[in-house]
């Protein structure tokens, strides 16, 4: 862990005084500790998915050979396929609809702004303060009235429109050059077409950032699906693994495997879109 030599592009770095070098070394030690603490539990999770319950409880840090047995005991009593399907369906549907609804609203608030629309924006922002717990019971009754318990709609609808996403897209619309809109209008493009053909392609990083946040929130959502998805056939992955510890005997190997499977989609999405993610929140248009 040294930082003594640096690339030739930065000739000055090689001449750092001792103090700076120590500071630099300290920085790498610090980062290493943070990285270890960060990855440690995940490593344990991955390794445990291949171990027997005894090995998991003995805190074995070496990969075992029990992966297939764990998979078998996991799928023996749990319908993992169905839970993955419902989790994916809920998360993808939420993400796609949220991106469409919130981006067009964010764009609308910025590009066609008027005092009344600004006022509406303020009111919508107030919703950010509403804790979910406060709306849960009436929301449940609302969906029950419409016969939507156990439906994908019941999980998706409350998660589509969020103040945070509208705000994010409004900010990105603010950095979108209005000259482009004017030029497009002169070319006779319809307003809707301007949004889809000009704004959407330019704002890919923002969409990526919004997609990551929304997908992860939707995938990880636990309390609301737990309340609204009454029929066990509709249970999602987080519900499945939470119920795992409710049985009389816990198979830790299988539990860790289930935990790993639950985490994989979000990890993949996150890292595929990681770069655009930071860029999206930066709001820089490239």
């Amino acid at each position: 862990m040294t930082d003594v030599t640096t690339t030739s592009a930065r000739p000055k770095a090689g001449e750092k005084p001792l103090g700076a070098r120590l500071r630099s070394a300290g920085k790498y030690v610090f980062l290493s500790i943070v990285a270890l603490l960060s990855i440690g539990p995940l490593y344990f999770m991955v390794v445990s998915a291949t171990n027997t319950t005894q090995d998991v409880l003995a805190s074995s840090m070496l990969p075992g050979s029990n992966l297939i047995a764990n998979w078998q005991s996991l799928t023996e009593f749990q319908d993992v396929g169905s839970a993955m399907y419902h989790s994916t369906l809920n998360a993808v549907a939420t993400t796609v609809l949220a991106l469409v609804v919130c981006s067009i609203a964010g764009y609308g608030f910025e590009v066609y702004h008027s005092p009344n629309k600004d006022r509406l924006m303020w009111v919508l922002m107030l919703a950010m303060m509403i804790p979910f717990a406060a709306t849960m019971i009436p929301l449940f009754q609302l969906f029950a009235d419409f016969g939507l318990i156990n439906s994908t709609w019941a999980v998706v609808l409350p998660a589509i429109s969020t103040p945070l996403l509208i705000l994010l897209f409004r900010q990105s619309a603010r950095s979108f050059p209005h000259e482009i809109i004017e030029a497009a209008r002169i070319d006779g493009l319809k307003e809707v077409s301007i949004f889809f053909r000009m704004f959407v392609p330019t704002m890919k990083p923002t969409y990526a950032a919004a997609a990551v946040i929304t997908f992860m929130t939707a995938w990880n959502n636990f309390l609301w699906p737990k309340v609204i998805l009454v029929n066990p056939d509709y249970q999602t992955m987080p519900m499945l693994i939470s119920n795992f510890t409710g049985g009389y005997v816990v198979d830790y190997g299988a539990l860790m495997l289930a935990v790993l499977i639950t985490s994989l989609p979000t990890i993949i999405i996150f890292f595929v879109l990681q770069r655009s993610f930071v860029a999206g929140f930066t709001g820089v248009v490239k």
Binding site: M45, F222, T262, F270
Partner: peptide
């Protein structure tokens, strides 16, 4: 990557992992 990756783990998942590693006979 190392610092971001916990943010990609579901809340229920990590709660159960922490429950396991902080058990009396845990890691």
């Amino acid at each position: 990557t190392a610092i971001f990756v916990p943010a990609a783990i579901s809340l229920v998942s990590y709660s159960l992992v922490f429950r396991t590693i902080f058990a009396t006979d845990g890691l």
